[in-house]
Design a protein around this nucleic acid. Sequence first.
RNA 1: CGGGGCGUGGCGCAGUCUGGCUAGCGCACCUGCUUUGGGAGCAGGGGGUCGGAGGUUCGAAUCCUCUCGCCCCGACCA
Length: 506
Amino acid sequence: MPKQPKSAISPTRQEDYPEWYQQVIKASDLAEASDVRGCMVIKPWGYALWENIQRALDRMFKDTGHENAYFPLFIPMSYLEKAAEHVEGFAKECAVVTHHRLEPGADGGLVPAGPLEEPLIVRPTSETIIGATYARWVQSYRDLPILLNQWANVVRWEMRTRMFLRTTEFLWQEGHTVHATQEEAVEETLRMLDVYADFAESYMAMPVIKGEKTAGERFPGAINTYSIEAMMQDRKGLQSGTSHFLGQNFARAQEIKFQDQNGQEVYAWTTSWGVSTRLIGGLIMTHGDDDGLILPPRLAPAHAVILPIYRNDQERGEVLEYCNRLKQQIEAEQFHAEPVRVKLDDRDMRGGEKSWRHIKRGVPLRLEIGPRDVGSDSVFLGRRDQPVKQKSGVPREQFVATVAEVLDEIQNNLFDRALQLRESNTCRIDAPAEFEAYFTPKNEEKPEIHGGFALCHFNDTPEMDEKLKKLKVTVRCVPLGGQDEPGRCIFTGRPSHRRGVFAKAY
RNA sequence: CGGGGCGUGGCGCAGUCUGGCUAGCGCACCUGCUUUGGGAGCAGGGGGUCGGAGGUUCGAAUCCUCUCGCCCCGACCA
């Protein structure tokens, strides 16, 4: 008898959600903590997932007219100073490079030497360095628009870190565009927000709300910040991508100007937008269950894993031959215009343990192949979106012919499940007392999973901020596309014409 | 930066209060045998000098001083 608990991950989501999250990352081989404060090692399985995210997004960026480029990791401090004059609320949590050499120290260690004349900042984001470059590139309206993206790492010296959700160093992409007119820049901002939402829903199977940030949540220096917001299984919100309309603020700070068709010198309009490895955190918390990770097929590094079962060398030969043939047949099938990705795991270890490993890693399909299946020319199929024990035999030919459909079915199931969670935990609230009750856990000591998304009328005032801070609730966004609706601010009673999404958030 | 906690084989821990037998245990790892449609059993084995420095002592993982690092709560979060 196995001595294992009923679920592969302990504690369960219900028992301790944050700890469950950590355990899933460990059990699924996505990443691990490193010796460097706040920095993680992304393991091959996690990185393959990131590569799939990159690939899909990159294609979407190219399809919307963008090109990739690469800008320096280091930013002269003066660039940030210049921006700080124009932009309030610039963060200071940065890694600062002050020396360029190491020398032997007195106690056998090394000491920094060769101080830099001007300190360099490890980029926390690249508006300033890219803007400085754009200032040189942009002379005429004929130089516009500039539509660039870069895949890069950035560093933000955050006080508290959580794997994937907030690490000191993280991987992301940042798009930076320059336009001749406000209309074009606004259009670009919203276009990329749409790209993010489409990616989140189509690839990640993670439903999101597109919306505009309130002033307090806005990117410093931006005129408008838009985001996509998702609900995790603990009913907290996760900002999963942002798109900023920067107006002419950065252009003014960095002298990005050009002569328009009338010969007038005018400032350009800029945007920036980004998503990061945080998406992986969102993926884990949207789909994962008490047995570990569940990967949406469109992003899974492996769609299926073949697990051969045999007792002796003769069986081994027969089973492996069948498995290899099966693998080739599956790989010949297409899933969303790409070959189906299948792995054959014939490592010499016990079947149960091996099978569980792939369950924890979230592989959508498990194909267990033993002599019996070889004999009946079938596969024994387990789906990650279904209970572990719910497995069944399927004729081989039928399986191969329908593998793409099954993957799509899983993809859609995951999305529907997530959407249902969000919908059943979203409500309109118009009474202050109800609002407070909604966001107050019954057990203050060890808060249970509670709350959700509350749609409320509001005025963006200090009174609200104070109230929200006490409850640890934030305005996630004001959803786009909704209709105006007269009402009264739940905090002040003043007239309001739109509802915002309120939630606890990561 | 405030409050709390912790650093002992790869991981998780016991031992520390009340210094003293070769520093233990579980998991993982290696070997062998038996098992094999499900996270195996038995036997054997490798690996640590107890975060670091200094001190007290016949003797320190255990006591004292200093120091480094990490975790949790708060502040912070481009």
